[in-house]
Design a protein around this nucleic acid. Structure first.
Ligand SMILES: NC(=O)c1ccc[n+]([C@@H]2O[C@H](COP(=O)([O-])OP(=O)(O)OC[C@H]3O[C@@H](n4cnc5c(N)ncnc54)[C@H](O)[C@@H]3O)[C@@H](O)[C@H]2O)c1
Ligand SMILES: NC(=O)c1ccc[n+]([C@@H]2O[C@H](COP(=O)([O-])OP(=O)(O)OC[C@H]3O[C@@H](n4cnc5c(N)ncnc54)[C@H](O)[C@@H]3O)[C@@H](O)[C@H]2O)c1
Lengths: 217, 217
DNA sequence: GTGGCATAGTGAAATTTTTAACAATATCTT
DNA sequence: AAGATATTGTTAAAAATTTCACTATGCCAC
């Protein structure tokens, strides 16, 4: 755990750090060894000062007059975000989306290992997806105690999201990523993130309407 | 198109309006007719002033001393966001995620109709998914001119995202929702939104690490 | 080694966003 | 119909975030 120079870090900063990691990985693949805040900023579509400020929350990673060493910066950010370890994850709700997530390699690649998949549908229990047997969700608390699980992903229908969350909370989970479009209640020491791309579609629709009104289109 | 009292509206406001709509729909289903900014705020996990301020960008929808009529407010917000019409959408990249989106009803329910699905993989072309035939992506510009399409969804691998975007731009699309973890270049009058839930996982991982450091867990 | 150059780190300013406070006003009660 | 009450719309203050401007410093050429 790196020492933080400030105690509260803006949410937006965390989100941008994720983008920086992405771009740095791309640069690494292309053989780029060193990058300036300006170059990285262009790639990420942000302001160079923003990058320097974001990094300053965690420490000093650059070399004045030179820039940042791509590999080292990437590693430093990952460590700052707590991504220098792997995280065990369970998934609740093996439907369309749940399956896509289970099959998709990106989670594992990023250090999030799905170690359990749960559903309440008897037809799905016992089925094997991506090498993982679907287990009855009522067994979730017991099962997750066996494994060392810290994060839960909810991909049930929205009206079942709270129930799924309750299972996860009972299992002592410390963070939840909820894909169902419903607020869930959880103690304040449990981190809850909501994922809903409909918001992005709304945003695009709104922007198009705006642009049309302004005569830009 | 409602007249805007201010010209620039915070992105965060748009995102929250989407949440308000969600909660209002829930209330509507439960037969709630009237809601105050305080009640709605609780449901959405925001500050009541925030709601009133967000709404003020678009007009006056409430009744002093009473609150907001659930149905009317919902409709007013949807109209403000440009959701009082349906939007034709095409999807590029019919893989795991693309399929999940095609099969998922929520898009249609929200007024976003997928009218075309494109892929470059010969094995996928011709396949039918959710009543839609997968078409060769090189035919995208020609096909989308036939239909009246304004929004494109990209679900290709990241290294193909720009190519997919180019097809869409050539087809005269006005907004893009990109699920691939890669920045894309587009003219400034084309609205581009990025969807990447890995950021949310990063965020949860970071918060857990933080909470542990603070001794909250 | 010294000087010039490039670029990180940083404190201050500007901007944006959120929150609080309150004045305005519909409805309800009597 | 007047007054009490509740809650909006709005203005002002506070907080947070972003951007700017400048200082510090490591590297490279000579
Ligand atoms: N499919 C998508 O592309 C997509 C995109 C964004 C959001 N979502 C959201 O993700 C959620 C899932 O979508 P989907 O398309 O996969 O739906 P789905 O109906 O295919 O899958 C839901 C699964 O959850 C299971 N389930 C229900 N209650 C449960 C419980 N209490 N415990 C455990 N499992 C339970 C069901 O048996 C089912 O397998 C929904 O809330 C949806 O709005 C889906
Ligand atoms: N599966 C998920 O849960 C998930 C979640 C988040 C993000 N993503 C991202 O979404 C994208 C797709 O993920 P996936 O799991 O569906 O991958 P996938 O490999 O299953 O699907 C990609 C599809 O895109 C097609 N394609 C490639 N180049 C194309 C082109 N130029 N034009 C048209 N089609 C093209 C491929 O033929 C393939 O069918 C990736 O960028 C991934 O990182 C996926």
């Amino acid at each position: 755990m790196p020492h933080l120079k400030h105690d509260r870090i803006p949410r937006a900063t965390i989100s941008r750090l994720a983008i920086y990691v992405q771009e740095l990985e791309g640069m690494e693949q292309q053989g780029v060894k060193v990058v300036s805040s300006e170059k990285l900023a262009n790639a990420c579509g942000v302001n160079p000062s923003q990058i320097r400020k974001d990094l300053a929350y965690f420490g000093e990673f650059g070399v004045r007059g030179v820039g940042y060493y791509v590999f080292e910066l990437k590693e430093a950010i990952k460590q700052s975000l707590g991504l220098d370890k792997t995280w065990n994850v369970v998934l609740v709700g093996v439907g369309n989306l749940g399956r896509a997530l289970l099959r998709h390699g990106v989670l594992r690649k990023r250090g999030f290992i799905i170690v359990g998949a749960f559903d309440c549908d008897p037809f799905k229990i016992g089925e094997e997806i991506a090498g993982l047997e679907v287990i009855c969700s009522s067994k979730l608390p017991a099962k997750t105690n066996e494994l060392y699980v810290e994060i839960g992903i909810i991909t049930t229908p929205p009206e079942r999201a709270q129930r799924a969350a309750n299972y996860l909370l009972e299992a002592g989970i410390k963070g939840i990523v909820n894909f169902a479009p419903a607020r869930i209640n959880a103690p304040s020491n449990v981190s809850v993130e909501y994922v809903d791309f409909i918001h992005n579609l709304f945003s695009v629709a709104f922007n198009i309407t705006q642009n049309q009104a302004k005569g830009l289109i």
